[in-house]
Design a protein around this nucleic acid. Sequence first.
DNA 1: ATATGTACGTTTATACGATACACAGTTTTA
DNA 2: TAAAACTGTGTATCGTATAAACGTACATAT
Lengths: 251, 251
Amino acid sequence: MSSPGSEDELPRNVRLAWGLSGPGTRGPRRGLTLDQVLDAAIAVANTEGFEALSMSRVAKELGFTTMSLYRYVDSKDQLVELAWDRAIGPPPELPSEGSWRERLDAWATAEYRGLRAYRWLTEHPIRTAPYWPNNMRWLDAGLGALSATLLDEDAKVQIVLTISLYVISRARFSWELESSLVDHRLDYPTVMPRILDPEKYPWVLAAVAAGAFDDDEVDDLAAWHEQDFRFGLERLLDGIDVLIGRSEATR
Amino acid sequence: MSSPGSEDELPRNVRLAWGLSGPGTRGPRRGLTLDQVLDAAIAVANTEGFEALSMSRVAKELGFTTMSLYRYVDSKDQLVELAWDRAIGPPPELPSEGSWRERLDAWATAEYRGLRAYRWLTEHPIRTAPYWPNNMRWLDAGLGALSATLLDEDAKVQIVLTISLYVISRARFSWELESSLVDHRLDYPTVMPRILDPEKYPWVLAAVAAGAFDDDEVDDLAAWHEQDFRFGLERLLDGIDVLIGRSEATR
DNA sequence: ATATGTACGTTTATACGATACACAGTTTTA
DNA sequence: TAAAACTGTGTATCGTATAAACGTACATAT
């Protein structure tokens, strides 16, 4: 059942990502490296968007045929996952001093900004169960931020995961807002009162009337989104603070 | 600038969703209704998954040709969005008494379970800015749950949105876990210690060693996921509680 | 030195997807 | 009754992922 290297029970994509399986030594030398392929994919996605990212487009970028890529990668899915991890990169150095809250805040903010760097990073369905090297380092950094607390490991993992899920969905949402806001006919304050039955949607209409959906004078769209992101983040951190306080009380 | 019906500045998909634009009276009678088309799409997605949802598959389901669907819908994207809103349906009746917390909890839990009903609901990228009738009723219900608080409307909207984003990503994540867990070679406790460099991933390895990733004896997978969902939800609600307390203090 | 086997990149072919467009038939309206 | 609007269909285009067969290059075993 087991073969030479004990790593080969692992799926090929995992081995590839962690550099555990080099190509054989026989045969013609390779014209490319996996990283070159991934970089080409990243370049295409960065500049032309996720929907433009196709095997043929990447191959063209490299001056190779479409099918040649399959010598480096088993499927398009695999390529995208590996490219994603390479694109997001490792987390930045976090201040090793400071409260868990400051560190977790910095960590979440860095992830948010990373995902805001290029839209396609949020368009690809992110398997948040981290299996790839960089993704794993983000997880490690998040857990590290909580290392000084008295929480059990299970709770730490839950917290890091919860925040990460929130960050990802906020980043995606802000990107989507950005593209749909282009259509000015769709702004809430104008449309909703015309469409909604006050009997069925009283609270929405109340919020609209109170101006909750007015996006007045926005000069810096990115900063505006980040503020919304921060709102939820602070609620989460407040809630985690409550939990930590409780765990310290019963210490 | 304005034409007969004042609604026609709105994009066609919005008009369709709210039933504001019927077909003209001239020409042959239609063989289908929009709702029939949507129901067929929902049936396909429910039973065969999101990736099986194609124009030709839906048409086949109805006994019509692929192109006939374009008489009811402008594009596949539009069909999916309308079908999504129809599939999720309106929110359930929430207890009109009870604290904001109980009501918001019930609301979030209902959304979570709705999204857990069929996987494809989380596979489709959800524009959480609610433009569709049912989606809008969910928003309304969420705002209603907060109506008795002293928060300003802006904060209410932020809160409802934040929770909704969290719910959606949790539902999606749990679905993804479910399909990737099938591959037992990939479970963390086995793989991680073999792969990770302890220098680079100390905290992850510590968590693994403490058993934070052991998914021992799970009889009811859905209940297990829902518990994880609840963890984050309670952190959020705790954080919102802090905010509400603050707003009442400065009342 | 030579034979062998393996890995390389290419070519060709398949199957499926969304949707633009032209068409012929049907029903209402002027 | 003629025109206009709308129906569903059939055909065609273009793009996608990827399976399979092929000839070539080259490290290793003999």
